[in-house]
Design a protein around this nucleic acid. Structure first.
Length: 717
DNA sequence: CTAGGGTCTCTTTTT
DNA sequence: GAGACCCTAG
């Protein structure tokens, strides 16, 4: 165990060995914070003889959890640990499964993801006869989610409603919350809220878990929200054996309710806390670190700190601009080839390309494919988000939780069984009149008035089919059930009859789902349907990513947090993209964009290349963007800039000719005054001359409008 | 009820 | 540019 401590620097050692009482670790990027917390857990188990199951360690992703687990195994020389290491959501779900009945759920409650949530919201809106035109379900959902993050429940929300819109949201919220309960389902926010409620409302429960989790660790604390904060506080209330690790400069999830202040509020809450600063960076070259420091220094709201390193100065960082996004992608490929030539030891997996928006990945993907470079995209269209996968899972979810009407509605007519909208509406009415689950109502189809005879038959037949599967579910493994559903539901048949290439791919995906179920079973040593479904709902995008693959990694900046690569490319360094157009409105969101940029930069070990395009096509329209302000924040002596060179292909490109003349035009980021809509920020520019258009987000209602420059007298402010 | 075509919106980021 | 959604003809 003493050997173990030798691998740590002074502050890291302090963070590891101060096991009793609160510890707050402020850890700069690349300062070995993961090392500190894994060693801490290993130290607790190895040196302090704390039983692993009495330790709770919370990470940001499942992948981080798995990594931590593996490292601890290695440090301790064991192959198994009965410990609680996982994300907040996974941990809460696990807890809630045990205690579900206290809150009026059964232990097989469903976990609704965003698409389920939206379906349910829309369903509720229909019940209230609210048109989707007027009330955007997305916006409603995000309001509800924000409310839940403050533990503001429907009744309280409705009382506090300030205007008509809020009142409407309140009504939908109320209905939505009831519907979730009826469906025996929780959304992501509920997992956290209900876990907290459980502790707050049942003292004996709180007592149980407080004495069970004797040591609590939380990573990435700057990205926790209020509910998560309260959860941690409640669990550590008595023993105070709490260690949280975070970096306020890497807080990039405030849009999801995360609150950086948590990091410092905790210090007030536990004034006796030992505060440890990790400021020595082991990852990057001096130049990269200087660039990162230069950028982040422009944020006004931050605790001053300065990362330093003993590493070499290294090469200057680079900035390559390109005429358009395709040449940008080719520039990246060119640089990868050049770097590999200069450094033969580098393989594909040493490279990563980060971008702000998922949409940027398509062009990169096209060019990588054309160049024959192996790449892997992390995120984007998740395997589990594909239609055929979602449909099949919906069948399984109905089996696991027959009250789940959202899933039932998704599949009742897929493949087509002659159960259309009207039929479904009648059944829905019948079900809510009788206060019974939708699935049960299907069985009573003969009592439902106004149904067509053939529809009635279909309903009964479907009900019988699902009931049969439900009777079988306990005797079959998750993988067997997946196979059974695919083969007997008519789904496989529907796809085999479709000769298209896509249908072929879908069949293959379904086969993969069967393997996924089997693999998950083996990994968890639990082959039940419930275990598989839970692991699917809580899976995150990075989780499936394997860094050992010999491929260049493509991912969003958000997903890059916590990772590192020898060479990093940051694509789309343009105003409107990074910082994103929607973030130009407030200083606060602008600073978050800067932190995002900082996170990207600090992922790089040796090489860092920024790229930008003069012109790019966004949502079908050509836009002209200025280079990102963040580039200007990096001192010239740290960065080599290379001018944009039109390559031969672009000159022939037909839209090159249309390139608008912006001598006297408006640019992204300009603040303008409109005669009717008032003040706003330009976030898109398109077309030229007579047809020049700008997209403006107005302060007054935060709505986006396209304005034809010629007809509106816009004034620059 | 279904299939096909046209329109409209949209993603900025995700457990 | 893609996907969701609505409308219409069969």
């Amino acid at each position: 165990m003493d050997d173990l401590l030798k691998n740590l620097n002074e502050p890291q050692r302090l963070a590891v060995t101060t096991t009793e009482g609160p510890v707050l670790v402020i850890a700069g990027a690349g300062s070995g914070k993961t090392r500190a917390i894994t060693y801490r857990v290993a130290y607790l188990i190895g040196a302090k003889r704390i039983p692993p199951r009495n330790i709770l360690a919370v990470t940001f992703t499942n992948k981080a959890a798995e990594e931590m687990r593996n490292r601890i195994y290695k440090l301790l020389g064991v192959t198994e640990l009965e410990s609680w290491i996982g994300t907040f959501h996974a941990t809460c779900a696990r807890l809630l499964r045990r205690e579900a009945d206290r809150l009026g759920f059964t232990r097989d409650f469903a976990i609704y993801d965003e698409s389920d949530q939206l379906l349910l919201i829309k369903h509720c809106m229909k019940k209230l006869s609210l048109p989707e035109r007027e009330y955007n379900p997305h916006a409603i959902l995000s309001r509800i989610s924000l409310a839940k993050n403050k533990m503001l429940f429907p009744d309280a929300f409705r009382e506090k409603a300030g205007d008509d819109f809020e009142a409407t949201v309140g009504n939908i919220y109320k209905l939505y919350a009831e519907a979730l309960r009826e469906n025996n389902a929780m959304d992501f926010d509920d997992l956290l809220c209900n876990a907290l409620l459980l502790l707050l409302q049942y003292p004996e429960c709180s007592e149980k878990y407080r004495s069970f989790f004797r040591y609590v660790l939380v990573d990435e604390f700057q990205d926790t929200n209020r509910v998560q904060y309260e959860l941690v506080r409640e669990l550590a209330r008595e023993h105070h054996n709490l260690c949280v690790v975070g970096d306020d400069d890497q807080s990039i999830y405030s849009w999801r309710g995360a609150n950086v202040d948590n990091l410092f509020d905790l210090q007030k809450e536990f004034p006796e806390a030992t505060v440890v600063f990790l400021e020595e960076n082991y990852r990057s070259t001096q130049s990269i670190l200087d660039a990162a420091n230069a950028v982040i220094a422009n944020n006004s709201k931050r605790k001053p700190k300065k990362l330093w390193t003993k590493n070499d100065r290294g090469k200057n960082v680079m900035w390559c601009s390109a005429p358009d996004e395709h040449s940008e992608a080719r520039r990246i490929i060119g640089e990868i080839r050049r770097l590999r030539q200069e450094n033969p030891e580098m393989g594909n997996s040493d490279f990563a390309v980060f971008y702000r928006t998922n949409a940027q990945s398509r062009v990169l993907e096209d060019e990588f494919r054309a160049a024959g470079i192996t790449y892997v995209i992390v995120g984007n269209v998740r395997f589990y988000d594909r239609k055929e996968i979602k449909d099949t899972l919906a069948y399984l979810r109905v089996l696991a939780n027959p009250a789940d009407s959202v899933s039932l509605r998704r599949i009742i007519n897929v493949p087509p069984r002659g159960i259309g909208k009207t039929t479904l509406e009648r059944v829905g009415e019948f079900a809510s009149d009788r206060r019974t689950a939708l699935l049960e109502a299907l069985g009573h189809a003969s009592e439902i008035p106004q149904l067509r005879a053939d529809a009635r038959q279909s309903l009964l037949k479907f009900h019988e089919y699902i009931s049969r599967l439900i009777r079988q579910k306990n005797d079959l493994s998750a993988a067997d059930l997946v196979r059974e559903v695919i083969n007997t539901s008519g789904y496989a048949e529907m796809l085999t009859q479709d000769p298209s290439f896509e249908a072929q791919a879908r069949i293959e995906n379904l086969a993969e789902l069967v393997s996924a179920a089997a693999e998950t079973g083996e990994k968890l040593n639990d082959f039940s349907l419930d275990a598989f479904l839970q692991s699917v709902s809580l899976q995150s995008d990075v989780d499936g990513w394997d860094e050992r693959m010999d491929a260049v990694t493509l991912m969003t900046l958000h997903m890059a947090k916590g990772l590192e690569f020898t060479a990093v490319f940051m694509a789309g360094m343009e105003e409107g993209l990074l910082p994103h157009a929607n973030a130009l409105l407030s200083e606060k969101s602008l600073e978050e964009e800067r932190r995002l940029c900082y996170v990207g930069i600090t992922r790089a070990r040796k090489h860092l290349v920024f790229t930008s395009a003069d012109v790019r096509r966004i949502r079908g329209e050509i836009e002209v963007n200025e280079p990102s302000r963040f580039l200007a924040e990096i001192p010239d002596e740290l960065m080599d800039a290379e001018e944009s060179v039109p390559d031969s292909r672009l000159v022939r490109d037909e839209h090159y000719q249309e390139m608008p003349d912006y001598e006297d035009g408006f640019r992204v980021g300009d603040i303008i005054e409109h005669s009717t809509f008032g003040t706003g920020v330009i976030n898109t520019v398109s077309g030229s001359g007579e047809s020049a258009k700008v997209g403006v987000r107005f302060y007054r209602d935060n709505k986006q409008r396209d304005i034809v420059v010629k007809y509106a007298s816009l004034k620059r402010r």
